[in-house]
Simulated assay, not measured.
Amino acid sequence: MPTIQWYPGHIAKAERELKKQLKYVDVVLEVLDARIPLASQHPQVSQWIGNKPRLLVINRQDMIPEALHSQWVNYFQRQGIDVYLTDGQQGIGIKPLLKATQKAGEAVNEKRRSRGMRDRAVRAVVIGFPNVGKSALINRLVGRKAVQSGRKAGITRQLKWVRISQQIDLLDAPGVIPPKLEDQKAAIKLAICDDIGEAAYDLQNVAAALVDLLSELETTEIFDQRYNIPVEGLSGESYLATLASQRHNEDQERTARELLNDFRKGLMGKLPLEYPPDYL
């Protein structure tokens, strides 16, 4: 499979601006895609934020089985990271996240009071890969449509401060991605989940990779149920060709897009592409 790489100019610029703004930030909310919490973790975030309080937000909780929710929470908590599950589209998990954000920033005002200064709003930043649902989450946190959102990588291109309340100011940052994607298995998962620009990959290759990955995870019954073609004994490429022959007059590009859209929209069901390393 060809190498997946994507680092458009607006992301490089956004990363530079983000690093400048981080010194003014009290709390970091790092948003992950629940289907791929490991692949959607930016490898340099820890280095960027240093000792600042960090809340991990596993968004799109509705797209994975409920049994996995506590498994992921436990996995990250064992690493000493505070974790919150959310569904930005439906507004689930927002109140606990707001409270945690405010609490994480309390130390700032305690220090200000000790110096005889007035309290100020806690400054939080929302960061993560493109299209993991950051903007939709911010709109839920604010309680109105304060920033543009949509299921497409690269919608947010400018950093923007948004006031949530007298207690919290939020910095909406464009999706950031490493200049080079060293882990190509993770890069493929990002492409499958639409968490990277479409210019970075070939649709047919990624759709075939989705079939192969679900086969590895032994969650292939959906292919028989949804498309009436069992996947057993077929590679991803062969399955794509077979499906294209039966449904779309050999048009593999159209078939690939259909497969990926069905997965991305949850029409295949709650299908995670990753499990915690210690999953039982």
Rank of each mutant, 00 (worst) to 15 (best):
N228H: 15
E30D: 05
R118K: 14
I49L: 15
R78S: 14
P179L: 06
R78Q: 15
Q77V: 11
K160S: 07
G50Y: 06
T242I: 08
Q44F: 09
V126E: 01
K23F: 11
L280W: 11
Q61E: 10
I92H: 11
D87F: 08
G116F: 11
T242D: 07
R144A: 15
K99Q: 14
R123L: 04
L213R: 07
K134A: 05
E15F: 06
S46C: 11
I177L: 14
I58R: 09
E110M: 12
W161S: 00
S149R: 05
L271H: 06
D212C: 01
L171C: 01
Q225C: 11
Q225K: 15
Q47D: 11
I192N: 04
W72T: 08
M117N: 13
T156D: 03
E110R: 13
V132C: 11
L68G: 00
N131P: 06
K52Y: 04
M117Y: 13
D224K: 15
Q158I: 08
Q167G: 06
I155W: 01
L234Q: 10
P130Y: 02
D278P: 08
V176N: 04
P276N: 03
K134C: 07
G133A: 12
R60H: 14
Q77H: 14
F263R: 00
V142T: 05
V147F: 01
S114R: 12
R264Q: 07
S238G: 00
A12C: 08
A191P: 03
L259T: 00
L260Q: 04
Y24W: 11
L170Y: 03
I222R: 12
D212A: 02
R264F: 02
